[in-house]
């Protein structure tokens, strides 16, 4: 009884934090898609993230090899916020002359989309 109540509470909490973290989730993502699934879709889409143009990623075909393979992201970025900032294009995380586009800074993607992409690549 108690156990299932805690579980319910936890789910509710997780749900609301997910909403808070990405307020656009409900309308931007296809119905019923988790943030990870939505992030994968954006990351693989040629029109949006197009991360595969440069990065090998598990599950993606015909990847380029301009950037490093996106694997073990949790190991590389123990601090998830730093990964968000990297994809966003924060200046202090930029590598000089790198091809990595500053997706947030140059408004290629919305912050909500970047959060979903990061949720996805954090599983790689």
């Amino acid at each position: 009884m108690l156990k299932s109540k805690t579980k319910q509470l936890l789910t509710a909490l997780a749900f609301s934090t997910a909403i808070m973290a990405s307020p656009m989730a409900a309308n931007a993502a296809d119905k019923g898609m988790s943030s990870v699934e939505a992030g994968k879709k954006i990351a693989f889409s040629k029109k949006k993230g197009n991360c595969l143009a440069c990065h090998a990623m598990q599950g993606g075909a015909m990847a380029g090899n301009i950037g490093p393979a996106l694997i073990a992201m949790k190991l590389r970025f123990p601090d998830k916020q730093k990964l968000v900032d990297k994809v966003w294009g924060k200046l202090d995380l930029q590598v000089p002359n790198s091809m990595m586009p500053p997706f947030g800074r140059n408004e290629v993607l919305t912050d909500a989309d970047i959060n979903k992409i990061v949720d996805f690549i954090y599983t790689l």
Partner: peptide, 24 residues
Amino acid sequence: GQFNLSCAKCHTYNAGRKARSNIL
């Protein structure tokens, strides 16, 4: 441009690498 790219990034620093399946 929006991607912050230069000709040099593609055709000098990354020449020989692949963007998707296009070799630069």
